[in-house]
Simulated assay, not measured.
Amino acid sequence: MTGSTRQRIPLALALIAAFGALAGASLQPGAAEADSPAVLGDEGDTPLLRDVLESTGRGYLQAKSALASTQARQARIAAELRRVEARITELRPRVEQVARAAYRTGRIGPVMVLLHSGSADEFLERARGLEAVALRDNEVLRSLRQARERAARAKLALDAEVAEERRQLAIMLRQKRAAERALAQVGGASTGGFVSATSPVARPAPRGADGGWPAQSCGRPDPTTSGCVTARTLHAYSEARRAGFTRYTSCYRPGGPYEHPKGRACDFSAEAGGFRGDATGGNRTYGNNLAAFFVRNADRLGVLYVIWYRQIWLPTTGWKSYSGAHGDPSSDHTNHVHLSLV
């Protein structure tokens, strides 16, 4: 073996080792994203969208959760009101028994006063003033009065809940209009979007005691990088994989805008090996199906917004057209589905 040959062998081995390291890094889920965020780019960050997507989307979801709680309370109060009204109906025959008993004992006058009252409230007022009614009869009348008082309280509570419902609906409408105005500056036309009634159904993420989405910290290990994610993000990621969406994914990023550094966002590549150019063919179909999966399960997963192929879905507006700031596959989201969670 010549000296020049011996010199070339270590050089060749070094090049092979370097190539292998690069190839391994490109195949390791999240490695490129964690160590070099520039691989994906800044995803078309603009201060306008950052503010709108965070504030209006979150405000809308908070109002939506409050509305659901209000409507649930309305249903409970209405059920209580029906029970009270049934109790009043049940007591009416017993009041008639009081009248018949009074007739047999000669207390016709007072009973006739009761029976000829113009309304139920007048009936009760007169009943309270009749000392001739026996203790047993008074108990019947007292039960009727208490039932009617409970019914009145229930009606007042129901009116208050209806007013709260209207307030929450007004908040949701304001958030919707604000989002539409902002999105109009970056496209914003309504689109058919990506929706499929046959998308898999995700298991719901835990909610708060009030039915809302409580704030969560970035406290769970991110399975796609060396960073962290919230419990809700980890749940959404796991549900996507359980539904068959297992291609390259990256969640945590240490810097930049949006929810990545907070552990509340993931980027799902349309390709198995990483983020490349515009998705076409089967890769684009994969992205379409994944976007549809997240939208169908938005209420189950706590989705704040979804971006895919120059379109954005928000709970306030549905699917709208969207153009990134730089017109490349990263900012236009034509190579990956972006998911942000509350």
Results as ranks from 00 to 15, higher is better:
Pro257His: 01
Ser226Tyr: 08
Ala34Val: 07
Arg50Leu: 04
Glu43Ala: 12
Arg83Val: 11
Arg100Asn: 10
Gly219Phe: 02
Val195Pro: 03
Pro29His: 14
Trp308Leu: 09
Arg92Tyr: 07
Glu125Thr: 03
Ala17Tyr: 11
Thr230Ile: 00
Ser196Arg: 13
Gly244Asn: 09
Phe294Ile: 05
Ser250Tyr: 08
Thr233Gln: 14
Ala32Leu: 12
Ala291Gly: 02
Ala127Ser: 09
Ser36Tyr: 14
Arg153Leu: 03
Gln97Pro: 03
Glu43Phe: 07
Phe294Trp: 01
Asp267Leu: 09
Glu90Met: 08
Ser196Pro: 04
Arg253Tyr: 02
Glu125Ile: 04
Ala25Tyr: 11
Ala38Cys: 15
Pro221Leu: 06
Ser321Cys: 11
Thr56Met: 01
Ala101Phe: 04
Phe194Ala: 01
Pro10Lys: 02
Cys251Lys: 10
Leu301Gly: 04
Ser269Gln: 07
Glu164Ala: 11
Phe123Trp: 05
Lys155Leu: 07
Val133Ile: 15
Gln216His: 13
Arg247Val: 00
Ala101Lys: 04
Ala66Cys: 04
Gly106Pro: 00
Asp299Glu: 12
Pro204Trp: 06
Gly109Glu: 01
Arg92His: 10
Leu341Ala: 06
Arg232Lys: 13
Arg153Cys: 02
Arg242Val: 02
Gln71Arg: 14
Thr334His: 11
Ser55Cys: 02
Thr246Asn: 14
Asn335Arg: 14
Tyr237Ala: 09
Gly212Ala: 04
Asn289Glu: 09
Arg87Asn: 09
Ala75Trp: 00
Cys266Pro: 11
Glu271Ala: 14
Ala72Pro: 05
Ser199Arg: 09
Pro315Met: 14
Ser199His: 05
Pro93Cys: 08
Val133Ala: 00
Asp278Ser: 11
Ala205Leu: 07
Met112Gln: 10
Gln175Tyr: 04
Ala66Gln: 03
Leu124Asn: 02
Arg181Trp: 13
Ile312Pro: 05
His336Pro: 06
Gly282Arg: 15
Leu13Ser: 10
Arg207Lys: 15
Val84Ile: 05
Gly57Lys: 00
Val133Asp: 03
Ser36Gly: 03
Arg220Asp: 10
Ala279Glu: 07
Gly273Ser: 10
Gly208Met: 08
Ala21Asn: 12
Thr230Arg: 11
Ala132Tyr: 07
Ser321Lys: 08
Val111Asp: 00
Trp319Ile: 12
Ala75Pro: 10
Asn283His: 15
Glu271Arg: 13
Phe293Cys: 02
Ala270Thr: 15
Gly244Val: 06
Asp210Arg: 00
Asp328Ile: 08
Leu156Ile: 08
His116Phe: 06
Cys266Ile: 12
Ala279Gln: 10
